[in-house]
């Protein structure tokens, strides 16, 4: 099943074209990695998928992006519902300056979802369990989230999305602030989450892409050069530029 289809997407920051005619298809409940050198437009592309670029002044887009069949670039799309469905994990873990509990309850509250104390407790527990934080934090739910370790913060940021039942999780270099062990554990978590969620991860770490993803897209200077299943991208790239990148000839 295709969850997301991107067709001929262009994006300009003012006069600078950051995405050029990008097309790609993302399969449901799979992990897709976007790789490419720094500045090639990976983050920009990811932020199109939940319309976070709308916050930046002077951004224009053209083309189509269908998520569950709906063109999310159209004017009348409900951004709040979109962002509830398509959650985002940032490069620097950014838990809110609230307690662990309130971080997870935040989404439930802002979306006006019905809850009682018991159901909310249950949602918090389930979300923390899904990201394997429950055992560590069950006695520290009312501590400030800012006191957690970087890895715990990043897991909490993922849990925050699960609480509102996102079905797509966008991750923009989620491990770049973490050490190798933490990175490895987050990757395990991603494989676990794949059972229920469609995950798109931006990374400049090719080993990471090779380890966790099912499909991979390679971007260069705003273009999607090659998009295929991860195995063929890494063993038999069709484009010369892809080959040069994965053999380490670009920065």
């Amino acid at each position: 099943m295709d969850k997301i289809q991107v067709k001929n997407l262009n994006l300009w920051y003012g006069n600078f074209q950051a995405l050029k005619n990008v097309s790609a298809t993302f399969a449901e409940k799979k992990i897709t990695a976007i790789i490419g050198p720094s500045g090639c437009g990976k983050s920009t592309f990811l932020r199109v998928l939940n319309r976070m670029n709308d916050l930046i002044e002077g951004v224009k887009t053209s083309g189509q992006v269908f998520i569950d069949g709906e063109n999310i670039l159209s004017q009348d799309v409900d951004l709040i519902a979109l962002r509830k469905k398509v959650g985002m994990v940032f490069q620097r873990p950014n838990p809110f300056p609230l307690s662990v509990y309130e971080n997870i309850a935040f989404g439930i509250k802002i979306h006006g979802l019905k809850y009682t104390k018991d159901t909310l407790d249950a949602i918090v527990e389930n979300s923390l369990r899904e990201v394997l934080l429950w055992d560590d934090l069950k006695d520290k739910l009312h501590r400030s989230a800012l006191s957690l370790s970087l890895e715990q913060k990043q897991r909490l940021c993922i849990a925050r999305l699960l609480a509102v039942k996102s079905d797509v999780v966008l991750m923009d270099e989620p491990c770049s602030a973490l050490d190798p062990q933490a990175t490895q554990r987050i990757e395990e978590l991603m494989r676990e989450l794949k059972k229920h969620y469609t995950i798109i991860i931006v990374t400049h770490n090719m080993q990471q892409a090779a380890r966790v993803s099912d499909d991979t897209g390679f971007m260069l200077l705003g273009e999607m050069i090659e998009f295929a299943d991860t195995h063929s991208i890494f063993t038999a790239p069709k484009d010369r530029r892809t080959e040069e990148y994965i053999t380490g000839r670009y920065g």
Binding site: L82, F90, F96, V164
Partner: peptide, 15 residues
Amino acid sequence: VPRSYKEGAFALGAT
């Protein structure tokens, strides 16, 4: 206030 809080909230669908 760090911009990242705001980004996080918007990305969750907060108004």
